[in-house]
Amino acid sequence: MTARKTAAPTPPAAAVSADAHWAATRERLLNRTRPIVRLTICDDHDAKQALAEARFVDQQAQDAADRDPGNEAAKAAHREAVAGLAQAQTAVDAASIVLRFQALDRKTYKELLAAHPPTEDQAEDGYAFNLDTLGPVLIAASSLDGITEDDATQFLDDWSQAEAEALLNTAFGVQREERMDLGKG
């Protein structure tokens, strides 16, 4: 049996005329950057609490101003709450460490997964890869801030369970970040 070669399909003229901007659309698609996500770490409990309180005060002031649009005192209170919220956010931002992670290209990600096969026990539990060996490698590979594999291993070993999981989930999550909306045409 011989394989039959077929010519590449030519889009129908009606389709081309319906989307005269395909070249520009295609160019935008080719120039998309891979997703980036941020993990924000703030160890200053007081600053985080002040921010939560400022958000609450801002929401209350906004509600009061919305209920009585002509009330100048409510408007002034809302402006003051907005300023307080901005100040609290600035304090949290100053106390925070922000780590950035970018999705790897699909081929690299698949190669990393394949390079870290599960142990027998992990495979029996349904895992497709070895999280213990892949985690630090993936964190380092997707970090935009220069986290090394050694750094990642140390963070995963030294941080609390919840914080280590947040770090891992961020590195894995960015690989699955979806920026598409499948709507009705």
Rank of each mutant, 00 (worst) to 15 (best):
S96L: 04
S96P: 03
M1W: 02
E163V: 03
A91D: 11
A18L: 09
K107F: 02
A91H: 04
A77P: 01
T148N: 10
W22V: 09
V98D: 15
L167I: 10
E124L: 11
L131R: 15
A61P: 09
P9N: 01
I41P: 05
N169M: 14
D46P: 00
A24G: 13
Q122N: 04
Y109L: 07
A86R: 04
L51G: 02
K107M: 07
I36E: 15
V57Y: 02
F172D: 10
P136N: 14
T6W: 07
A103N: 02
H21M: 06
V137P: 12
T25K: 13
V98G: 09
A13G: 06
E149R: 15
S96K: 03
Q175M: 15
A24V: 04
D58H: 10
H78P: 00
L167M: 12
A73K: 13
Q89M: 05
L168H: 01
R32H: 07
D157Y: 04
E80D: 14
S17I: 10
H21P: 03
E80H: 02
L168N: 04
G185P: 04
L104C: 08
R4A: 10
A7P: 04
A140Q: 11
T6D: 09
G185M: 00
T119S: 14
T119K: 01
R79A: 13
R26D: 05
Q59W: 02
V57I: 15
H78Q: 14
A13M: 10
G84D: 05
Q59S: 14
N71Q: 06
D132E: 15
D43Q: 10
H45V: 07
E177F: 12
T6N: 12
A8L: 11
D157P: 02
Y127S: 15
A50Q: 10
H45T: 06
Q87H: 12
V92H: 00
A65I: 05
H45E: 12
A3G: 07
A54F: 05
E163I: 00
Q59P: 01
E178L: 13
L182P: 01
A54V: 00
P117Q: 02
F129D: 05
A95I: 02
Q49G: 01
P117F: 02
Q154I: 05
R55L: 04
Q154Y: 06
Q175E: 14
A103Y: 05
I147P: 12
D68T: 12
R179M: 10
Q49M: 12
S142H: 09
R67L: 10
L85E: 00
Q154D: 13
Y127W: 15
T10Q: 13
D105F: 05
A65W: 03
A73L: 08
I36C: 15
L156G: 06
A128D: 11
V174K: 03
P136Y: 09
M1F: 00
Y127P: 02
A64Y: 03
A171W: 04
I147A: 11
A3C: 05
